[in-house]
Design a protein around this nucleic acid. Structure first.
Length: 827
DNA sequence: TATTCGCAAGTTTTT
DNA sequence: CTTGCGAATA
């Protein structure tokens, strides 16, 4: 991209030697210049994808600094650590030694709260609970209230509380709607939950924002001083702000409304998390004399890609129309491919990437494969391994969510915050030391009833009547060990963690188990120590236990992603936001996946799904392939899939369409649409990959070989774990629930989404039947061909094949392990 | 009362 | 395919 002409050194020199240097602005287009040069007053920067937004922000800050604004008065707020880090890095290159703040909302709030914690009833060493910890606390809070939870899950309740927190509603200001049962539950759980949080000296993610807002509202002096301290504020991805964040932005820009927000309504994809699109749509109303700058020039994608993106997003109603332009070449057409199943999809993509790397001089890190849900990465990982293509999976929170890591971090949390009840319960009996659930419950009870820290309660185990002497002794031993470790609390973090591992014997305990999994876990522990050591190295001044824990709570694995590394990147569309890749594959474009089945109930959700695809498409620089499958293994069987409705909105004549004619596309006006090649059921779900096959083996690089040959194809595993035979009576019940095959309309049959939904709802669609169930001469049903008789059986295991005579529809062959065939009771 | 084993159930996206 | 829960056992 021509935008990177400015080398770091050239930039800073130019800027400081010759403030209004032509060089500095030359690399920016007129709109970008306008955004950079005006530093006072509220500004809305509507930045389309690939429009050089980050560049504008960093230049703008640089410009502020050189026009005399103290860099300490500048703050840039982002959503992800990744974005914050990138901003910091770029800014440091342009203005070495600057003191501006670039941070996520959550971290910004956390810093603030640590300073003012006492004012909101916390101490500065509070723990930040992640979602799963918060869920546990909810569970306990619910336990305290003895409510009937038949109709609402913990997820429902915590979601509702989260909504309330986003709106700044505290337990004492919550007014439940009369007649709303969920509200009734929440009205007693919410206060209880907050009480437990406070007792544990902990906050959840929502609290970070809410409590900071609360603090500023209740303390206007503080608000005013922070408003002036951060006189110049920028907010990135403003379309993703929720109400709590919005409130903070307003509070900190009252006296000094030098606020620039950047965003793109079309890229708002966090509505489910409370993001309020109206924040950006109504920015002009919220602030006076708003200057609006539109960055519509796209420097990233080819014309082909951009036009596909444009056509798609034009279907949304709730948006500000904008024109995406680019001077880039038209480029190759966007591909739209239909595959038979995910294994083939993965295999072909892996192959084409491998080919591009070998023959087209592409590098692995030129490629990204995007998907709606993390679960879709499995087939790809497997295929990439088979083809020897190096890849990395960007999966949010993976490392820090592992059990062993959580265990050790919990211990670390407990050292930092002796009140941390969740951490205490996590570590008290890990490794097992004979302190079970009942005992823990008694300690917890004591802690709550006497309003003492959980460790204090444990310390007084001897005073708890209901505890046996021997149990109290065990607890005392634990407390003694805890105290020993606490002596090291001021050492470097890596040493503290090492000490925990040594004192608790955690690692030895794992090794003792002897399983392969245990060794894996032991390795992860070592990795944690390395990570801690790395943290110590990077934070010689501002380090320490608390800083480390905060970091661990607020980072995710996405942040560790490195674009420089030589890997194909696999990631969700959500986490791809803000990134760009030369070649992008978006997979699983099927109804129910994108749009997701749980996000297509109303138009707002559907529009968000469309924006999600828009975000995915606009990650691509010069090559884009969209693909879908005709059947997919979901829940417990292969299910036919309908093409995503979004695909119908794309300009197909401009695209390269490789869709096999499929059951979904035929309305009935075709003469003879079916042929063996086109019949998805004649090709079972297993790609014919066999690493023992010589023709394939040469493609398998040494490291890519699976350790266990039985693992060579995922389906093998699935079959092996299947119970040998479905229980007889169960089996009959199942078949009786099947729709009558005589009712199935004659093909060609158009399978609609509604059909599928109906079948799914009945829970009786294609169900997997063990191959051994089928016997010669048995009457079987098929969703398309009706009933038939098994005329021939051959092969065994995975390859067991049946020939079925369907009468007027002829004789067809099926791999029984993957067929939709079901036994039919004969009258 | 703790531990271990087996089975069931629930699986979007993230700070 | 994981985690969570319940029953059986030590």
């Amino acid at each position: 991209m021509h935008l990177s002409i400015l080398s770091p050194h050239a930039a800073s020199n130019q800027m400081f030697d010759e403030p209004d240097s032509h060089e500095f602005l030359k690399s920016l287009n007129p709109e970008q210049q306008a955004a950079v040069l005006q530093v006072d007053g509220p500004m809305l920067i509507l930045a389309g994808p690939g429009s050089g937004k980050t560049r504008v922000i960093t230049h703008r800050i640089a410009h502020m600094i050189h026009s005399g604004i103290d860099s300490r008065n500048i703050v840039a707020l982002t959503f992800t650590n990744k974005a914050a880090d990138e901003m910091k890095n770029r800014l440091s290159e342009m203005v070495p030694g600057h003191r501006a703040t670039a941070s996520t909302f959550h971290r910004f709030c956390s810093r603030l709260l640590r300073v003012y914690a006492p004012q909101i009833g916390l101490s500065e060493n509070f723990t930040i609970y992640d979602t799963s910890d918060s869920k546990k606390l909810f569970k306990q809070a619910i336990g305290e209230t003895e409510l009937d939870l038949r109709h609402y899950s913990i997820a429902n309740i915590s979601q509702e509380v989260s909504n309330l927190k986003n709106r700044g509603i505290m337990p004492d200001t919550f007014e439940p709607k009369p007649g709303n049962y969920l509200h009734r539950i929440v009205s007693s759980v919410y206060p209880q939950y907050q009480k437990l949080l406070q007792l544990a000296n902990g906050v959840d993610f929502d609290d970070l924002l809410m409590l900071t807002g609360q603090l500023l509202i209740e303390n206007d002096d503080l608000r005013a001083s922070l408003d002036s301290r951060f006189s110049h504020m920028m907010v990135d991805e403003y379309q993703d702000t929720n109400l709590a964040q919005y409130r903070l932005v307003r509070l900190l820009n009252r006296d000094y409304p030098n606020l620039a927000v950047t965003g793109d309504p079309d890229q708002s994809i966090y509505g489910w998390r409370g993001a309020t699109l109206s924040n950006i749509l109504e920015f002009e109303r919220d602030f006076q004399n708003v200057r609006i700058v539109r960055l519509e020039q796209n420097y990233r994608s080819t014309k082909s890609i951009l036009s596909v993106a444009d056509m798609l997003i034009a279907n949304n109603f709730r948006r500000k129309p904008k024109a995406l332009r680019t001077d880039n070449a038209r480029g190759e057409p966007v591909s739209l491919v239909g595959y038979r199943n995910p294994e083939i999809e993965a295999n072909e993509i892996a192959e084409s990437i491998r080919h591009a790397i070998r023959k087209e001089n592409r590098r692995p890190n030129d490629f990204a494969i995007l998907y709606r849900t993390n679960a879709l990465s499995r087939a790809l990982e497997h295929a990439l391994r088979i083809h020897g293509v190096p890849y990395q999976v960007v999966q949010g929170l993976e490392f820090y969510q592992r059990r062993e890591i959580k265990d050790l971090l919990a211990f670390t949390h407990l050292i930092n915050n002796p009140a941390d009840a969740i951490a205490f319960e996590r570590v008290i009996n890990v490794p097992t030391r004979g302190i079970g659930a009942k005992t823990v419950e008694k300690i917890r009870r004591y802690s709550i009833d006497n309003r003492v820290q959980i460790t204090e309660a444990a310390r007084r185990a001897g005073l708890i009547d209901s505890l046996a002497k021997s149990t109290a002794t065990k607890i005392s031993k634990f407390v003694a060990m805890y105290d020993r470790i606490c002596e090291s609390r001021d050492l470097p973090v890596a040493e503290i963690i090492q000490k925990i591992i040594d004192q608790t014997g955690y690692r030895d305990w794992l090794i003792e188990a002897g399983t392969e999994e245990a060794h894996e876990r032991a390795n992860n522990i070592d990795e944690l120590v390395v990570a801690a050591a790395e943290f110590d190295r990077q934070h010689p001044e501002d380090g320490g236990l608390e800083a480390f824990l905060e970091q661990a709570a607020l980072v995710n694995d996405t942040d560790a992603w490195e674009s420089a590394s030589e890997f194909v990147t696999l990631l969700t569309i959500h986490s791809s936001k803000g990134l760009e890749f030369p070649c992008v594959y978006i997979i699983g474009l099927e109804d129910g996946i994108l749009p997701h089945e749980r996000s297509s109930s109303n138009d707002d959700e559907l529009e968000e799904e469309r924006r999600l695809l828009f975000v995915g498409i606009t990650r691509a620089q010069d090559r884009l392939q969209l693909s879908r499958c005709e059947s997919r293994y979901r829940k417990n069987g292969y299910w036919p899939c309908i093409a995503s409705r979004f695909l119908m909105e794309l300009p197909r004549d401009e695209m390269n369409v490789h869709e096999p004619r499929s059951i979904n596309d035929y309305g009935g006006d075709e003469e003879e649409p079916w042929s063996k090649d086109l019949d998805p059921w004649l090709h079972d779900g297993v790609p014919e990959i066999d690493i023992n096959d010589d023709t394939v083996r040469e493609h398998v690089s040494e490291f890519a070989k699976p350790k266990n040959p039985a693992n060579k194809i995922p389906q093998t595993k699935i079959l092996q774990t299947q119970s040998p035979l479905p229980k007889g009576s169960q089996q009959n019940d199942d078949s009786r629930e099947q729709p009558s095959y005589e009712d199935v309309p004659k093909f060609p049959r158009l399978v609609t989404a509604a059909d599928l939904a109906k079948e799914q709802e009945a829970g009786t669609a294609i169900r997997k039947i063990h191959p051994e169930v089928f016997k010669l001469g048995m009457r079987v049903g098929h969703p398309l061909y009706g009933t038939g008789v098994i005329s021939e059986l051959s092969g065994s295991g995975l390859k067991k094949t049946a020939h079925v005579d369907f009468g007027e529809y002829g004789c067809r062959r099926f791999r029984l392990s993957h067929s939709p065939l079901l036994p039919v009771e004969s009258e």
